[in-house]
Design a binder for these strands. Structure first.
Lengths: 201, 201
DNA sequence: TGTCAAAGTTAGCGTCTCTTACATATGTAA
DNA sequence: TTACATATGTAAGAGACGCTAACTTTGACA
């Protein structure tokens, strides 16, 4: 997570400036929020001139898109790994997914809001695909638990209920002022409660 | 909601420029999002020079704060009114609150995200107070339904579960790309389902 | 070794931003 | 009517930003 942005050896050619810029951009989005992110800032952090990025990205938007793709792909694989340790068809797997979702939001609120916040223009197709992949994981687990033969209407409904809850929980716990209103409730306990309540008949 | 921003008579003194600027700011935040809002835009919309706002607001931030206050106050009173028609202690009142919450997010996504999105600096005390007032309404209703003698730990937990769910549902349905994954589920039906599932023993 | 494309830099254009100092118009109250 | 406080306009400062053109350094390969 704390990747190097500026290489020690100060050679003319950076080596992998593209990756360094993506990482710098990601860090800055986390630190200042997307609305205060500037290309110049990313350049300063990566230790290159303000013109350098344009050898790797068409414009500012493409830098941000690159960060979003990298981050969502990482999240997808995190979710797959989170489920792994628990037996198929168990509620533990659902809980693990919820725990990871909330954890991701807390670790990377900037990216989380970038993905789900207000954006005038629609996302890249690749972003939507990654989002769908990730949601498929949830729907698959829900179907297993409910004993449904695939993504039926019932599975869709329960999955969306779970997503809504976990998403809201993420947003609220991201903001200390708001989380406080929950009265220091344990996230783990809330996930436990919601799991069986939503998935029971 | 579609308030006049520029008065027809073009007198030197506007009459109520402050209110006009607040409304222009609110509209622009809805249209372009907070990160693309500029004082100049608000001035253009209100039909005054770019220096005019500084007789009414200390700076840009105070304009935005004014909008937030106005909007949250309105939301609080909407919530109070939403509950009114239904008998005390009934689940209908909870559902009405949820319906209004989601509705507000859909009608005014810009303000909704401004309130709940990523902001480096904490909100005004007045904003927090209004938020608390609104949440108190929910906790009060939950206590009534559960037959608890006030805001007990149980009331806190269930209220926060409801809030999380409704908040997540708001965020997801605000974004057409994401709402689609719910498979055109009826919000009303989701609120019904969640209500009893969360509040039952 | 010589050539060339790739990956940097320097310099700057054009635009937008927030904000202020100062001039001007207007309404009000004596 | 006159004086004055209030509300607005004009003009401009000071700075950030995105992006481009043109130049320079570097590494790889014939």
């Amino acid at each position: 997570m704390a990747k190097t942005v500026k290489s020690e050896k100060t050679t003319y050619h950076h080596g992998d400036l593209r990756a360094a810029l993506v990482e710098a951009t990601r860090q800055l989005i986390e630190e200042k929020g997307i609305d205060h992110f500037s290309v110049s800032d990313a350049c300063r952090r990566a230790g290159v001139s303000t013109a350098a990025p344009y050898k790797h990205f068409k414009n500012k938007g493409e830098m941000i898109n690159a960060v979003m793709l990298e981050s969502m792909d990482r999240h997808k694989h995190e979710m797959l790994a989170a489920v792994q340790p628990y037996p198929e068809g168990s509620l533990d797997r659902i809980r693990a997914l919820g725990r990871n979702y909330v954890g991701f939001a807390q670790r990377e609120p900037g990216i989380f809001l970038l993905r789900f916040g207000q954006n005038p223009d629609p996302h890249l197709p690749e972003v939507e695909d990654l989002g769908q992949d990730t949601y498929d994981i949830v729907q698959h687990e829900v179907a297993k638990i409910l004993g449904e033969p695939g993504v039926t209407d019932k599975v869709k409904q329960r999955s969306f209920m779970l997503w809504s809850f976990v998403h809201g929980l993420s947003m609220l716990t991201m903001n200390p002022e708001l989380a406080e209103k929950g009265g220091n409730l344990d996230v783990e306990e809330l996930l436990n409660e919601i799991g069986w309540r939503v998935l029971r008949d």
